[in-house]
C-alpha cells in the first residue's frame, strides 16, 4: 500500500485541502464512517461481555434444565450434536460435488452452469425459508416430527453451498502440474484426486467447514420449526432439542431470564469468535 507518490507531508495535505474543501469533507466522512463501524462493533461486543460475564455461573452448566438454573448445557450438547450430524451429511456431499465440478466436468458443461445457478440460489435463500422447507419435508412428509435429525438435515442443505464453494476454490488453487505429473507417472484419476489434489487443498476445505460450523451454531430461524424448542438433552435423534441460539431466543420470548440470556449470548459469541479465528488460522496455513 505504500506508494512513493502518496508520501506527502501533513502540511502539504492541509494546503491541498484548503484549495479543495469538498475533498476535506469526504475525508472527514470516510473517517467518521470507519469510526462508526468500529465503535458499533466495540460497543456491541463490549456491552455483551460486560453484562454477560458476571452472569456466567456453574449453575448454567448443570446437566438438567429446570426453571431454577436455566441451564444451557443441554442446548450446548444439542448444538454439538446437530453440528456434527449436519456436517457429516453436507461435508462429504459438498466436497464430492466440488470434486466433480473441478476435476470431472468439462469446461462450459451445462451441468456446471446449472450447479453454479443452484448453489447461488441456495446461498441466497433466507434461513426461515429453509425452516419452512425442513418442516414440510423432513418433519411432515418424512414424518420425523420435530427432531434433532430433521434440524440437522435442514442445516445440512443450508451450509452445502458454502462448503461446496470453498472446496471448489481450494481445489482450483492446486496447480495443474501436480495432476499432470501424477498422470504422467501412471496414476489413475481417483488416486490422483485422493493422493495428489486433496492433500494440499485440505486447509482451504477445512476453513470452509469451520465457517459452516459457525453458521450452524448461530442459526435460529430454520431450527424452531424443525428441531423444536425442548430444552432437554434428546433421548434419540428423533426427539426434539433446542440449540444454543434457539435457547437464547426462547429465553427472550419467555422474558423471565434476561440475565441468563446475556450469559448465553456471551457463550455464543465466544464459540463464533473461536470458529472465525480457527478458520482464519487454518486458511493461512494454505498460503504458507
Amino acid at each position: 500500500m505504500k506508494n512513493p507518490i502518496n508520501q506527502s507531508t501533513f502540511k502539504r495535505r492541509m494546503r491541498e485541502y484548503q484549495k479543495r474543501p469538498a475533498s476535506f469533507v469526504m475525508f472527514i466522512l470516510v473517517m467518521l464512517c470507519a469510526c462508526v463501524t468500529v465503535l458499533s462493533f466495540v460497543f456491541l461486543v463490549g456491552y455483551l461481555l460486560y453484562k454477560g460475564i458476571p452472569n456466567i455461573s456453574w449453575d448454567l452448566f448443570a446437566l438438567n434444565y429446570n426453571s431454577e438454573n436455566v441451564s444451557l448445557l443441554p442446548s450446548l450438547i444439542n448444538t454439538v450434536t446437530i453440528t456434527f450430524l449436519a456436517l457429516s451429511v453436507s461435508g462429504p456431499t459438498g466436497i464430492f460435488a466440488a470434486i466433480y465440478l473441478v476435476e470431472y466436468a468439462k469446461k462450459g458443461n451445462k451441468l456446471v452452469k446449472l450447479m453454479d445457478l443452484t448453489s447461488e440460489t441456495l446461498s441466497g435463500i433466507p434461513s426461515i425459508v429453509y425452516g419452512l422447507f425442513g418442516m414440510l419435508f423432513f418433519v411432515v412428509a418424512l414424518d420425523w416430527g420435530f427432531s434433532v435429525l430433521a434440524g440437522a438435515c435442514t442445516l445440512a442443505i443450508m451450509v452445502l453451498p458454502l462448503i461446496m464453494r470453498t472446496t471448489q476454490e481450494a481445489l482450483r488453487s492446486v496447480p495443474a502440474e501436480f495432476r499432470e505429473g501424477a498422470f504422467g507417472l501412471g496414476a489413475d484419476k481417483v488416486r490422483v484426486i485422493f493422493k495428489i489434489v486433496l492433500p494440499p487443498a485440505v486447509p482451504g476445505i477445512l476453513s470452509g467447514v469451520i465457517l459452516a460450523v459457525g453458521r450452524i451454531v448461530g442459526e435460529t430461524a430454520s431450527l424452531i420449526y424443525t428441531a423444536g424448542t425442548v430444552a432437554e438433552i434428546p433421548e434419540s435423534l428423533f426427539s426434539s432439542g433446542r440449540t444454543l441460539a434457539v435457547h437464547m431466543y426462547a429465553l427472550f420470548n419467555e422474558g423471565l431470564y434476561i440475565e441468563k440470556a446475556y450469559a448465553t449470548g456471551v457463550v455464543l459469541l465466544v464459540i463464533v469468535c473461536a470458529m472465525n479465528l480457527l478458520s482464519n488460522y487454518v486458511a493461512k496455513k494454505l498460503t504458507r
Binding site: L44, G218, F252, L269
Partner: peptide
Amino acid sequence: GAIDLLAGIPSVVYGFFGLV
C-alpha cells in the same frame, strides 16, 4: 478480523442487542 466477526455474530445476538 472485527468485521469478519461482525458477519459471524448470530442474528439472535444482534436482536438481543437491539432489544436492550
